[in-house]
């Protein structure tokens, strides 16, 4: 096992030299998580908006289901996806197990409820503020949701970033459905897990640094957005 100092200099060297293995892992991670975030937002925002603005039968059940999904351990979600995609499973014929697509599916399922729950909160607060005005303008439900989404765009963007932050740092589900296959389905978190347990701290730390930069970048973006949104709100 390397000493931490040694590992650190190897890590820096790897990051600075743009090591091809490291870059491949980083790009795959970003590809998977960004795609998953986009899909989750595409599904989650309308769902959040629907629950925030409309009262319908089954709304309570829907809320419970959405919340329950957030409680599911990611590994279990991974296992369920695995079960479906495995050769014996109902979707086995697609041959998706151990592919990036499988990882995108797993991450989407994991972060969609969070995106929906957070966007629901954002839109519900906004709706509470504007409900009377909307009624006085007799907007259709679709128009209402359009107006809310436009007005809450900065807040929704921070929701998307929060989802992305979770997706990119997730490891359990991705490990199970992706299998952590070198050059195919190895992403940052699974690589870190593997390399750390092998004692190969240099690569693990290098990836950790990249992940940290991404996490800080996302946090900074969220913070910046919030400031922008606030400035917007008071113009």
């Amino acid at each position: 096992m390397q000493s931490i100092g040694e590992a650190f200099s190897i890590a820096i060297a790897l990051v600075l030299s743009g090591d091809s293995d490291l870059l491949a892992i980083v790009f795959l991670s970003l590809y998977v998580s960004v795609t998953a975030t986009l899909i989750a937002c595409l599904l989650g925002f309308p769902l959040g908006a629907l629950v925030a603005t409309r009262r319908f039968r089954g709304r309570g059940v829907l809320l419970v289901v959405m919340n329950a999904l957030m409680g599911l351990p990611p590994v279990v979600v991974g296992l369920l996806v695995y079960l479906h995609l495995s050769r014996a499973g109902p979707l086995g014929f697609l041959g998706l197990l151990y592919t990036p697509t499988a990882m995108i599916i797993a991450q989407t399922i994991l972060i969609m409820p969070i995106v929906a729950a957070l966007s629901r909160q954002v839109l519900e607060d906004l709706h509470g503020e504007y409900a009377e005005q909307f009624r006085s303008l007799s907007l259709t439900p679709i128009q209402t949701i359009q107006a809310l989404v436009w007005d809450g765009r900065f807040a929704l963007l921070t929701v998307a970033l929060a989802g992305f932050g979770r997706a990119v740092a997730e490891v359990g589900a991705v490990m199970i459905v992706g299998g952590n296959i070198d050059h195919l389905t190895r992403v940052m978190t699974t690589a870190i897990a593997l390399e750390t347990s092998k004692g190969n701290l240099g690569l693990a730390l290098g990836l950790g640094i990249v992940l940290m930069v991404i996490a800080l970048g996302v946090n900074a973006a969220v913070h910046g957005l919030r400031l922008t949104a606030r400035r917007h709100a008071y113009v």
């Binding site: 809320l63 419970v64 919340n67 329950a68 957030m70 409680g71 599911l72 351990p73 590994v75 279990v76 969070i114 729950a117 957070l118 909160q121």
Partner: peptide
């Protein structure tokens, strides 16, 4: 068995859960 406890906690304390999450 692994998903029962967290799901129970979330469903049983939904209001608190959402508040904490937000």
């Amino acid at each position: 068995l692994a998903m029962i406890p967290p799901v129970l906690v979330v469903v049983g304390m939904q209001k608190l859960f959402i508040r904490g999450l937000v």
